[in-house]
Design a protein around this nucleic acid. Structure first.
Lengths: 346, 346
DNA sequence: GTGAAAGCGCTAACAA
DNA sequence: TTGTTAGCGCTTTCAC
């Protein structure tokens, strides 16, 4: 069922059929009606390759995620709501969203190169930005519309949105300092991912603001998953005196941390203050509930989509915003896992 | 940078360039060398739309997932490892995997219709099969290669792989009955998803095998997430006498169930026996650890990919298997959350 | 308001 | 072994 078949069936030219289907003005309303009716009847949908070849656009947006140890296990719970938000915007513009999964054994930059060169997508959302990220230079140079979920030290004029890692670290320190804590540990990502630096920066600045000396011993790098949280707890327990508070950069860490603390008979909120990162369905059901930060991932997705649309030539007029460079705030959700200094340690 | 540019640059015909790049036999080794070298040099990658239009294939496989309440929150942790496995196979064949995300506000069947009609993908993996699933009829009728992750009552000759829900339910009942439990409750999905029926079937059969009467009061439907688990626990607590054991159909339920039990001062493994569904990074770090079932989602993905390849005309010769209809076994992982009947209730 | 025809990039059939 | 050319399905320009 090609446009030719449809035209033959209606006994009009394919040019007219095309124009009718694409809502061009110069077509008889009655003819259009007939065409649309027949298309529906016969289940005709234009072949995307034909359109793409002719128009040079694919009407498809790629959201690139890398399967790392952290995302394979848990990343889905972060990305799925974001996708949902992105898609809700794109659907209005008849753009399709596809998730581009860069495997663990493939270099992200060369994967991206392939996707772009094949003209697979009209625009891209990239995530997990590295401190120095060659993908950004590449996309800028090729003038491929994209938006980054995550900042990077890589320079250039491109839109990005990132979570407020410094703000989270800083709010957490402030809250804990207010409770009287001074030995505040921090669980950071073990990898080179950019957010780790931001998180640490916010932590250090907030410590300084509260006149607390920075102690490198209290920075505990680990993988951003349950296992990592378990190791962070081990590292905490090994210290003497043990820190009275811990801030985590990743929501999944909390699960493993809770486990190890439980094994040691230490209860969050009573014996140690714990502040997690992102509120998740899990964190709400931990016992005791986790003090953490709330964010609407769906809204984040919506904003990402809008930021990208503003850079797409075909849609820029509808989204005539400035280039987005946005640090997305996160809202503290108090739980039972932190509070005043345990009296024994005071 | 099109094939024409590349040919001009090398001063040979585009036909030769095409054949050289596609590894055809009838091309001078020296020429091929030059072509490949130049392509690399100039960063040439064939335009996918051009190829697709000509060949009628897109070299892309779609993995359709629906964003439901359950998958948006937690589905990622299930699907990501599956994707990784699928992709590891496809990469060898230069097939790209894209996740097709059917939004909550779109009908799965019509979404699929669009994807197929646009010729977006060469083959499909569909998931979350419904008891009666129109997508299956549609794909069979259109002769689109596909494999289903999940069984369905919809008839037809198509490959599918599914988790062994009956087996899990039956093993769980057997284990609990062996511990002396007789009032064994079950948390099932509230939706019409096919696996709910299978799970319940296995449960009922296993009860019968052990001479335990089926009590509809002990079937507790809920959403397959933390919230649902919480509600299941509420329902348990409301019964008098309370069931001595509970089997869950979903790993995320365990988190919420643990929370509610903890609030009530009831400890899994001591006061009630809990058997969860799939082992996850989280379940391993729950306290007490959850008795559940292990499955390699990556291997499942690999099998899915192979099953699909066997139905793709271009690859069938390399994967000449029978049509796959596979119930994937799951291996019991004993945890601390179940055990002999509590003496007080014995 | 409609039809005819060019051409997007590519591969495959055929000719040389 | 290489060059030439038709044509995949579609949109768009131009002529009518």
């Amino acid at each position: 069922m090609s446009i030719r078949d449809l035209a033959r069936h209606l006994d009009i030219s394919i040019g007219t059929v095309s124009r009718a289907l694409n809502g061009k003005a110069d077509v008889n309303p009655e003819t259009r009606e007939r065409v649309l009716e027949a298309a529906k009847q016969l289940g005709y949908v234009p072949n995307q390759s034909g359109r793409s070849l002719r128009q040079g656009t694919t009407n498809t947006i790629g959201f690139m995620i890398e399967s790392t140890i952290e995302t394979v296990d848990n990343g889905g719970s972060f990305f799925m709501p974001v996708f949902e938000g992105v898609q809700s915007v794109f659907r209005r513009h008849h753009l399709d969203l596809v998730a581009l999964l860069c495997g663990t054994d493939e270099d992200p930059a060369s994967y991206l190169n392939r996707v772009v060169a094949r003209r697979f997508v009209d625009g891209l959302i990239i995530s997990a930005t590295a401190r120095s990220d060659p993908r950004i230079d590449f996309l800028l140079e090729r003038k491929i519309p994209f938006v980054a979920l995550g900042r990077s030290a890589t320079k250039g004029d491109y839109p990005w949105i990132d979570l407020d890692f410094e703000g989270v670290a800083s709010q957490a320190v402030q809250r804990l300092a207010g409770f009287g804590h001074r030995r505040i540990a921090i669980g950071t990502p073990a990898s080179d991912i950019n957010l780790g630096y931001l998180f640490l920066d916010g932590y250090r600045r907030a410590l300084a603001d509260h006149g607390i000396a920075f102690d490198p011993e209290l920075v505990l790098p680990a993988n951003g998953n349950e296992e990592g949280g378990y190791q962070v707890a081990c590292a905490l327990l090994a210290q003497n005196p043990m820190p009275t508070a811990i801030i985590l950069v990743n929501e999944n860490m909390a699960i493993g941390l809770y486990r190890r603390l439980h094994e040691a008979g230490i209860q969050p909120g009573r014996d140690i203050a714990v502040i997690g990162f992102r509120e998740s369905t899990q964190s709400r059901f931990l016992s005791p509930t986790l003090t953490c930060f709330r964010i609407s991932l769906r809204d984040l997705g919506i904003k990402l989509a809008e930021a990208l649309l503003a850079t797409l030539p075909a849609f820029a007029s509808q989204y005539p915003r400035e280039k987005v460079a946005l640090i997305w705030p996160m809202e503290l959700v108090p739980g039972e896992s932190d509070g005043p200094m345990p009296s024994s340690a005071a």
